[in-house]
Computed example of a mutant assay.
Amino acid sequence: MALCTPKGKPMPPGWRSTIELSEVAMNSRPSAPTELSIMRLPEVAAVCGKSRAAIYKAIRAGEFPKQVKISARSSGWVRCEIEEWVRSRMASR
Rank of each mutant, 00 (worst) to 15 (best):
2 A>F: 02
29 R>F: 04
45 A>E: 09
81 E>H: 14
27 N>E: 10
46 A>S: 15
32 A>T: 11
85 W>Q: 10
5 T>Y: 11
43 E>R: 14
89 R>P: 00
65 P>M: 06
13 P>N: 09
80 C>F: 11
91 A>Y: 05
3 L>N: 00
68 V>K: 01
60 R>Q: 14
81 E>A: 13
41 L>Q: 12
26 M>H: 09
31 S>P: 02
92 S>T: 08
40 R>Y: 07
46 A>N: 14
34 T>I: 13
44 V>Y: 00
26 M>A: 15
25 A>E: 13
82 I>C: 05
74 S>Y: 11
43 E>M: 15
12 P>L: 07
45 A>P: 02
32 A>F: 06
17 S>E: 14
90 M>G: 04
33 P>V: 06
41 L>R: 08
63 E>T: 12
85 W>D: 02
60 R>C: 12
90 M>E: 12
60 R>A: 15
89 R>A: 01
27 N>V: 08
18 T>A: 11
2 A>R: 06
43 E>H: 15
25 A>G: 09
7 K>I: 01
55 I>F: 04
45 A>W: 00
86 V>G: 03
40 R>M: 11
46 A>C: 13
61 A>W: 10
31 S>D: 06
24 V>C: 13
9 K>A: 09
77 W>F: 12
82 I>D: 06
86 V>S: 03
9 K>I: 02
83 E>F: 07
71 S>D: 09
17 S>R: 14
25 A>N: 11
50 K>G: 04
41 L>K: 04
80 C>I: 09
73 R>M: 04
13 P>Y: 10
50 K>E: 08
81 E>V: 05
19 I>G: 02
65 P>Y: 07
68 V>D: 00
50 K>C: 08
57 K>D: 06
15 W>N: 03
11 M>H: 03
39 M>E: 08
68 V>M: 03
27 N>R: 11
53 A>M: 12
87 R>N: 07
19 I>W: 12
75 S>F: 07
28 S>N: 10
38 I>E: 01
89 R>D: 00
79 R>N: 10
27 N>P: 00
6 P>K: 02
54 A>T: 11
22 S>Y: 08
59 I>P: 03
51 S>T: 14
41 L>D: 09
37 S>P: 03
92 S>A: 14
36 L>K: 11
5 T>V: 00
68 V>A: 04
75 S>I: 05
64 F>Y: 07
57 K>N: 06
28 S>R: 15
75 S>P: 04
88 S>Q: 12
39 M>D: 08
23 E>Q: 15
56 Y>M: 04
35 E>R: 14
78 V>C: 10
70 I>D: 00
75 S>N: 11
13 P>E: 10
12 P>Y: 04
45 A>I: 07
76 G>S: 13
68 V>H: 03
77 W>H: 10
81 E>S: 14
37 S>Y: 05
31 S>W: 08
81 E>G: 07
32 A>E: 06
10 P>Q: 00
49 G>C: 02
7 K>T: 03
65 P>G: 08
88 S>L: 13
54 A>K: 07
10 P>F: 01
20 E>S: 13
71 S>Y: 00
26 M>S: 13
63 E>Y: 06
38 I>M: 05
63 E>S: 14
87 R>C: 02
38 I>S: 02
71 S>A: 02
28 S>G: 06
62 G>L: 10
12 P>R: 09
26 M>E: 15
88 S>A: 11
11 M>L: 15
61 A>E: 14
42 P>R: 01
53 A>P: 01
3 L>C: 01
